[in-house]
């Protein structure tokens, strides 16, 4: 393939992936809308401000934000075509992502243990589904990252790996933005109001 053809393929993949992310955005929008409607249907159970611990969530948020930064650094390394740096930053990003996921899981388990599980009220169903869907996306992102690290290690920087790394970075930043929304609307807002 010559150079313009390579670029064309890359642009095509990126556009396709953008479209996919847009549709994913709508998936989250539907879940947000549902949360907005059901977020006060406590069914006699606790309300949001009673069960969420803000410092804990703030920690989660900081970890995810940092992982976005390191993911950006991996892309910078990609532009410099420095394989070791790419692998290094991807590893840090993945580790932070895994930590985030572990904390989220901890939050879920604690809530369920305290009797505030997803079956307790419409509010909690909506909460677990919205946050859980984000968590599911992060898990998929982690699997993908693992695969990409293996690929970069195995084959080096081919056109294909480069393209996939760009898409992965896009995906990771997107998840970060969704999390900012979750943090503001689900965790922060009930405490401020």
């Amino acid at each position: 393939m010559n150079r313009t053809e390579t670029e064309h393929v890359r642009d095509t993949s990126l556009l396709g992936f953008w479209l996919f992310i847009m549709s994913d955005c709508l998936l989250f929008a539907s879940l947000f809308a549902t949360y907005a409607v059901l977020g006060h249907s406590y069914a006699g159970g606790p309300s949001a401000s009673e069960i969420f611990s803000l410092p804990f969530v703030l920690l989660e948020t900081l970890i995810l934000l940092t992982s976005t930064l390191t993911c950006g650094l991996a892309v910078v390394a990609l532009y410099k075509r420095n394989r070791e740096q790419i692998l290094g930053w991807l590893f840090v990003t993945g580790a932070l992502g895994a930590l985030f996921l572990a904390l989220e899981l901890h939050e879920f388990v604690t809530l369920i243990a305290e009797g505030h599980g997803f079956q307790a009220s419409a509010f909690l169903s909506a909460f677990f589904t919205l946050v859980g869907t984000h968590g599911l996306h992060v898990s998929i992102g982690l699997l993908w990252m693992l695969f990409m690290m293996a690929q970069v290690y195995r084959t080096g920087l081919t056109n294909v790996t480069e393209r996939h790394l760009m898409c992965l970075a896009l995906f990771w930043h997107f998840l970060d933005i969704v999390w900012i929304f979750i943090f503001s609307f689900v965790y922060l807002l009930p405490i401020i109001v």
């Binding site: 549709s23 998936l27 419409a122 169903s125 677990f128």
Partner: peptide, 26 residues
């Protein structure tokens, strides 16, 4: 995506006992 989300919520109600569209618990 809206359909995907809606069907998922109905499925969660039915298989995991959630309460998006049930007549009880909000």
């Amino acid at each position: 995506p809206i359909l995907t989300a809606t069907l998922s919520m109905l499925a969660l109600d039915r298989t995991l006992g959630m309460h998006f569209f049930t007549t009880d618990l909000g």
